[in-house]
């Protein structure tokens, strides 16, 4: 008797509901912890706390720097709390109405783009993970080659112009449809984490490749789907270059480009002399920190929703006795 069933659509094996703990070895056997376990726990706790502190402090610094007087930040007076608190950085950022168009555009491009990414990348990764598919070697080689060699900016620009995607939403979505890096990672996951025996069973039952992929592989791959979706989404979110080169209308610019132009509007380069140089510089520093917060917050809010896909344990072929 096993706990796996393949009635109709593959039912995703349920991890037995234990007391909120996700640590595997505590699931079934309720052994009491030995001394070495406690020591291990203690060591781990110390390490984790140390890591959190080391990571957390600079992050905290960014938050308080975005509220502080930039002069005080520069001379090192800002350590644990904001000094000379003011919201000028943020008012300058949000006073610019383009920021809301920026947010809107980025959300559209990121979601639409990621959707296309997943639809194109995952099936391809699956197909290329099939060892019996002989052309996969040459295809992978040709794909990997493009990670290193490219024609550069100008040929790409001319191409986009010719197919008419310049200065439109599609330039954010189409050219980047496949990231070979993500493809390789997804392919590697399919190769190693889905046991071939499942395919045997599926074949015996007359399932085609597509059927197998959709009904069995995908449901079991929630972890890698979440990771690749995250990578693609963040790639779209942080993309500054596409908007810079290929977009003319300010109304189509995504968030990163809007933020950069706000930052630049408050900066001068070292060739600009005069008191404007000194004056503008001061707020540019503060805006720099604020920009990070503004552009990252949505991502941070989104992440916990994806996290649960990484933490679920997968039980394939659980056996008893």
């Amino acid at each position: 008797m096993t706990s796996v069933s393949l009635q109709g659509k593959a039912a995703r094996p349920e991890a037995p509901k234990m007391n909120g703990s996700s640590v595997p070895w505590n699931k079934k056997t309720k052994q009491s912890k030995t001394l070495s376990d406690h020591i291990a726990d203690g060591l781990i706790a110390i390490l984790v706390v140390a890591i959190i502190l080391v990571v957390l402090y600079p992050l905290w610094f960014i938050v308080i720097a975005s509220f502080s007087d930039p002069t005080k930040v520069a001379i090192g007076e800002v350590l644990t709390l904001p000094k000379g608190t003011n919201f000028t950085g943020y008012t300058k950022i949000f006073a610019d109405s383009r920021i809301w168009t920026g947010y809107k555009n980025t959300l559209i491009y990121a979601f639409a783009g990621t959707a296309l990414n997943m639809v194109v990348t995952l099936p391809a990764a699956f197909a290329l993970s099939r060892s019996e598919f002989k052309p996969r070697r040459i295809i992978m080689f040709l794909f990997t080659f493009t990670m290193f060699f490219g024609g550069g900016l100008i040929p790409s620009y001319l191409l986009y112009k010719q197919i008419g995607i310049l200065n439109s939403m599609w330039v954010f979505i189409l050219p980047g449809a496949v990231s070979v890096y993500n493809l390789i990672i997804a392919r590697s996951f399919f190769e190693t984490s889905i046991p071939e025996e499942l395919h045997d069973a599926a074949q015996i039952d007359g399932m085609s490749y597509i059927g197998y992929f959709v009904r069995i592989v995908l449901p079991l791959s929630s972890a890698i789907i979440a990771v690749i979706a995250l990578y693609y989404f963040v790639g779209h979110w942080n993309d500054y270059f596409t908007g810079l080169i290929y977009i003319r209308d300010a109304s189509k610019q995504p968030l990163q480009n809007v933020l950069q132009s706000i930052l630049l509007a408050n900066q001068t380069n070292s060739n600009s002399a005069g008191m404007t140089a000194v004056a503008a510089q001061r707020f540019a520093e503060q805006i720099k920190y604020g920009v990070i917060i503004v552009s990252t917050l949505p991502l941070l809010v989104m992440y916990p929703f994806l996290q649960k896909y990484f933490n679920k344990g997968v039980m394939i072929g659980a056996i008893k006795g």
Binding site: V73, A74, R282
Partner: peptide, 11 residues
């Protein structure tokens, strides 16, 4: 960095 220099100039 420039910002530190400015900070000492402007105080």
């Amino acid at each position: 960095e420039d910002s530190a220099i400015t900070a000492d100039t402007v105080s």
